[in-house]
Design a protein around this nucleic acid. Structure first.
Lengths: 297, 297
DNA sequence: TTGATTAATAAAATTAATTAATTAGAATTT
DNA sequence: AAATTCTAATTAATTAATTTTATTAATCAA
């Protein structure tokens, strides 16, 4: 049976094209490495390297074999990472994409707790729109992305971890501002201010209100919730924001009032997306536990 | 460093959930297997199996680890297969998809030779339309597919191995039947009989003639070249067939005449399609060599 | 209790791996 | 032409590991 050691040595020889240097790199004697390579070639019954007393080169078949060997080594590394991450969640560097309608409200609430619980953690945060993040996860440029569902994510796996409702934000002077609940058919939809196309929050807000996209006035649109509520404060209309944004955007304002949107079902669902074969699911689960603890105060 | 032996043993324990049976299956003593598993768990620092004197079960983490272990084992098997196939091409079972406008003309010319050169070979042939075959290759249901390019095949790799021209088939009584060459603008395109939509030969034939698809009379269409030439023999029109089909369809007919289509460039290109990580490229290369020898007579 | 199982363990035997020194072939230098 | 310097392969002694066989301890069933 071929061994991982043989594979390891063969990859070293490929890298250095020199038995002694490869042996040094592997911290073994040239003899040990030599016999391991010979044994590997004997077991496979083919030549991987062509060597004489002056030079070493890789056979055509050897290239394919070493390619496959590299794949095996990666898989073994992943297996070991699985175990490591189970022992020490978040001990590995991790890149996380977050959409702009979640990042500024979720991260300040959650990151300090994560820092405290996992001082070793090295999180790299990327903020971008849902479709960009999904593509980056697919391409392996991100380990995971936090976004709001529903959003198409074929080929990826979603770990849903939070559900929240929308609140209708209007000026305190508005006749309906004192209500505790409001239905979408009671609002003045013609002055509903929402984010630009491409931000999923717009679609989710409209979907929560059972409104078609076309009905929205696209003359007024912004790229951040902060801008939107400024516009509401300026009596240009009303808007809808998710619950987790209330603290930052509305609660300290003397101009604004938040009314719970009374429509059935949770209005948006937050989830981590990962590739099906991502080995860090233990990390995701740890993060979710942290986030849920923090969000529940 | 963890070893493939440990992985092998762990997978056996997962399968039997019983150390002794797993050991028997691996042809080692229970003790040897036990220590290997213990060592593996120690090296990883986590428990894969939960065991007492009466039962063995897999931990939650163990399931992930064994899943990864299976992947490693598959990769190792593939590496060994790479070597084996280099030593004895086509010694592995192989499934090949072929489109209907290639299969009946190419296979009889080629398979006997393959049988002779590689008596060990076990080829499974599937005949279907290009799009079906491409999907099957993508899903791994076929090792490879032989079809005519151009045809969309994103994500797959094409090994082009043959180029051929079209011949215009008409009744011997036709005024142009004696010509040795004909250009598409000299034909009566209104009675050009072609295959049904979905067969790539139709598109390739039209493309070779620089004709748009709409120009073709869709009232007359067939699902096989055999039917088409029967229609031509019945003086219902003319058709275009690739060179390799001439022998079977035209050459022994007293009714039909074949005229070389005089349009620039090769009219269709035959190719093997494989997944980028298919390990049997050596097989493909052997087959191509065989096919090219046979086709050149 | 007794007998049949189980996985783990201990000690002996076997097998494999490692090191250090050597060999042999080829290129380069003297 | 001879000596030197590379190279990978080989050899032999040592060390480490693995495996086997036999045994132990625990559990369950009769």
């Amino acid at each position: 049976m071929i061994s991982l050691k043989q594979i390891h040595y063969a990859l070293a020889v490929e890298k250095y094209l020199h038995f002694k240097n490869a042996a040094d790199h592997c911290s073994v004697s040239q003899s040990a490495l030599s016999t391991a390579i010979n044994e590997l070639e004997k077991q496979l019954g083919v030549a991987i390297f062509e060597r004489d007393n002056k030079k070493v080169l890789v056979t055509e078949l050897g290239k394919s074999i070493l390619q496959q060997a590299r794949k095996i080594k990666l898989d073994v590394d992943e297996l070991q990472m699985l175990a490591t991450m189970h022992k020490q969640p978040l001990s590995m560097p991790m890149s996380i994409g977050v959409i702009p309608t979640i990042a500024p409200y979720l991260l300040p609430k959650v990151l300090p707790g994560v820092r405290r619980a996992y001082p070793e953690s090295q999180l790299k945060i990327v903020e971008d729109k849902s479709n960009v993040l999904v593509d980056m996860v697919r391409r392996g440029e991100l380990d995971t992305a936090i976004l709001a569902l529903p959003f198409p994510h074929e080929g990826l796996i979603a770990f849903e971890f939070w559900q929240e409702d929308f609140y209708w934000i209007t000026h305190k002077d508005d006749a309906l501002a004192k209500r505790s609940q409001i239905r979408s058919d009671e609002m003045d939809v013609s002055h509903l201010l929402l984010l630009k196309d491409g931000h999923c929050l717009k679609e989710h807000a409209l979907a929560a209100c059972h409104l078609p996209e076309s009905q929205n006035d696209s003359n007024f649109s912004a790229t951040s919730l902060t801008t939107l509520v400024q516009m509401v404060a300026g009596k240009l209309g009303s808007t809808l924001v998710p619950e987790m944004a209330l603290d930052a955007l509305v609660n300290n304002s003397s101009e604004l009032s938040a009314v719970h949107l009374d429509e059935p079902g949770p209005h948006r669902t937050l989830a981590f997306l990962i590739r099906p074969n991502y080995v860090g699911t233990a990390n995701i689960e740890s993060l979710i536990k942290q986030i849920q603890t923090q969000l529940k105060h």
